[in-house]
Simulated scan of single mutants.
Amino acid sequence: MTTDAAVPAAPLIDLLRSRSSARQFLPTPMSPPDIREVLEDAQRAPSNSNTQPWVVHVVSGAKRDALSAELVRAFEEERFSPDFTADYGTGVYLERSHDHAAIVYQARGVGRTDVEGRREVVRENLRFYDAPHVAFLFMPMLGDGVRTAGDIGMYAQNFLLSLTARGFHGIPQTILGMYADVVRQALDVSDDYKLLFGISFGTADPDAAVNRIRMHRLPVEQSVVMHGVPEWGCANS
């Protein structure tokens, strides 16, 4: 049943539309109970046949600092070891990736020809943007891994939305998966588990200009084809 009166957005809708990725954090750590609550929320994610394939390592404190330093060294020495490719192709997806990078560089004050400035942006990634915590999301290779990776994505979305709901912030970082061997060795993780990506998290720095970035989203019409439903904006009679 519908009425002409405006219906306020549900809290979940507000949450979905307000979440954004932070790229500069305050050093203040979250409390263990707060982290536990976020993990409990993430654990509610759906998964294929309830396999719950996520294997998550949360790193904080001195362990986090040592791992960050080793990741930066691996970057300087070009010791890449991705478990998965990071290929955007040659078309629109690559263009969107380039647009994203340009927005971030501009917010950081890094020019197009500033090679060292761009390298420093990579280092900031590997320093987890100064976030006090980082969660590494590993997965077993079940079949070709596609369904399992989808499950990890749903887990990550729960994780990110839970952070937002509790007044915290996070950012998923594919770049952390580019150094999978470094992370596995540091955390004593079996080679049987593949690193998809990491999520740096904590409290966003409210004064950082880069945290005012809001990446655009495509109109629904550019991503969705409707079949057997009324035209947009028309209600069922």
Rank of each mutant, 00 (worst) to 15 (best):
E124R: 14
F128Q: 00
Y129H: 11
P140R: 06
H169L: 00
G117C: 04
G117K: 08
S162V: 02
T164K: 15
D144V: 09
G145M: 05
H169F: 00
L163V: 07
G109L: 10
G111Y: 08
E116G: 08
T148P: 00
S97K: 15
T148Y: 02
H133Q: 07
E120M: 12
I103P: 02
D114S: 09
L94F: 13
F128M: 12
Y105F: 13
V115Q: 12
A149H: 04
S162E: 04
R119C: 08
T148N: 11
Y155Q: 01
G153Y: 12
G117H: 05
F159L: 15
H100K: 12
Q106F: 01
E116S: 12
L163H: 02
N158R: 13
M139R: 09
M154K: 08
D99E: 15
V110Y: 04
G153C: 10
F128P: 00
V122Y: 11
A107Y: 01
I103N: 05
A165N: 12
E116F: 00
N158Q: 15
I152K: 02
D114T: 02
V146Y: 12
V92F: 14
F128T: 01
G111H: 04
D151R: 03
R119H: 13
P132I: 04
R96S: 04
R127I: 01
L161I: 03
D151T: 10
L163R: 00
A107C: 12
R112D: 14
G117R: 03
G91M: 07
E124K: 10
F138D: 00
Q157K: 10
Y105D: 13
P132F: 05
E95S: 14
S162R: 02
G150H: 09
D144G: 03
G109N: 06
E120A: 11
F138N: 06
G91V: 11
F128K: 00
D144R: 08
D144N: 15
A165M: 06
E95A: 15
R96W: 12
A107D: 03
G150T: 08
T148K: 01
A107M: 04
V121E: 11
V121C: 10
N125K: 04
R96F: 10
S162G: 07
Y155F: 15
R123S: 05
E95G: 05
F136P: 00
D114Y: 05
R166L: 13
G153E: 11
V134S: 02
L163A: 08
L126C: 00
L160K: 07
A165F: 09
D144W: 03
A131Y: 01
L163T: 01
R112F: 06
A135R: 10
I103A: 14
H169P: 09
R147K: 13
F159D: 04
I103C: 09
T164W: 05
E95Q: 15
T113A: 15
Q106G: 11
P132H: 04
A156W: 04
F138G: 06
D114R: 07
D114P: 05
R166T: 02
V110H: 07
G117Y: 00
Q106Y: 01
Y129L: 05
D99N: 14
A102V: 09
R118V: 00
V110D: 02
L163Q: 01
D130A: 14
A135V: 03
A165S: 15
M154D: 02
V121T: 11
V92N: 02
Q106M: 03
R147V: 13
R127E: 08
R123A: 08
A165R: 09
